[in-house]
Amino acid sequence: MLDALLQLMILVCFAHFFLLFFTWYSHKNNGMFNTDELQWELFSFQLQKELTNAKEFNRRTSYHIQYSSNRGGLGVRQASSWEIRREDGYQPLLFDVSMVNFDYSNYILNTTVKFKNGKERSRMFIVPNSKE
C-alpha cells in the first residue's frame, strides 16, 4: 500500500511538471519570443533611433514617410502588399504586413501596422527636429 501511494505521489509530481512545461511553452509562442513580436520591436527601435536624429521630416502618404539625417535622405514605405522597406533599396524592415498607416501631427508620428495574421501593432514616435 505504501509503495503504491509513493508511486502515485511521484506520478502527480511529474504531471505537474508536464503541465508547467506546456503552460510555459504556450506563453513562449505568444509572448516576446515570438518572431513577429521581435521583428516589430526591432523595427520600432530602428525607426525611433533614426527619427530622433532626423533633420527634416515629411509624410508623403499614409504608407510612406521621408526624413533626412546625417546619413542623407531616408524613407520608409510599404513596398508591396506584404512588407515594409526602405524607400530606395532592398532592405526589408518588417515582413507579413497587410497594411501600414503613418499619421503625423504635433511632432508625433503614430504608426499602425496590421499583419497578415490579423494582429495589429501601434506605436507613437517623437520627431523632435521636424518643421510643421
Rank of each mutant, 00 (worst) to 15 (best):
L2F: 03
D3S: 14
D3Y: 06
A4T: 10
A4G: 11
L5W: 13
L6M: 07
Q7L: 15
L8G: 13
I10L: 06
I10P: 02
I10T: 02
L11G: 01
V12G: 00
F17Q: 00
F17E: 00
F18E: 00
L20Y: 05
F21Q: 02
W24Y: 15
W24D: 08
W24M: 11
S26T: 11
S26G: 10
N29A: 15
N29L: 15
G31E: 14
M32A: 08
F33M: 12
T35W: 14
D36A: 11
E37Y: 10
Q39T: 08
Q39I: 14
Q39S: 09
W40Y: 04
W40Q: 07
E41I: 14
E41Y: 08
L42Q: 11
L42N: 08
F43E: 10
S44Y: 15
Q46Y: 12
Q48V: 02
Q48C: 08
E50R: 10
E50N: 08
N53H: 09
N53S: 10
A54H: 02
A54W: 10
K55A: 14
F57P: 13
N58P: 06
N58H: 15
R59L: 07
R60D: 10
T61I: 14
T61C: 15
T61K: 11
S62L: 01
S62Y: 06
S62P: 02
Y63Q: 09
H64N: 14
I65Y: 01
I65M: 05
Y67E: 15
S68N: 07
N70H: 08
N70V: 11
G72T: 00
G72Y: 00
G73E: 03
L74S: 03
L74C: 06
G75F: 15
G75W: 09
V76P: 02
V76N: 06
V76W: 09
R77P: 13
W82F: 09
E83T: 09
E83S: 09
I84G: 05
I84Y: 07
R85E: 03
R85D: 06
R85A: 06
E87T: 12
E87A: 12
D88K: 13
G89D: 02
Y90N: 07
Y90C: 05
Q91A: 11
P92S: 10
L94N: 08
F95L: 12
D96T: 09
V97I: 11
V97R: 03
S98E: 02
M99W: 04
M99C: 02
V100K: 01
V100P: 00
N101A: 14
D103Q: 04
D103M: 02
Y104S: 03
S105A: 09
S105M: 12
N106H: 10
Y107M: 09
Y107G: 04
Y107F: 13
T111D: 04
T112W: 05
V113F: 01
V113W: 03
F115R: 00
F115D: 01
K116Q: 03
N117C: 05
N117I: 03
G118P: 01
G118A: 04
K119T: 01
E120H: 03
E120Y: 04
R123H: 06
F125G: 05
I126V: 05
I126W: 06
V127G: 06
V127P: 13
P128G: 04
N129L: 07
S130L: 05
K131M: 04
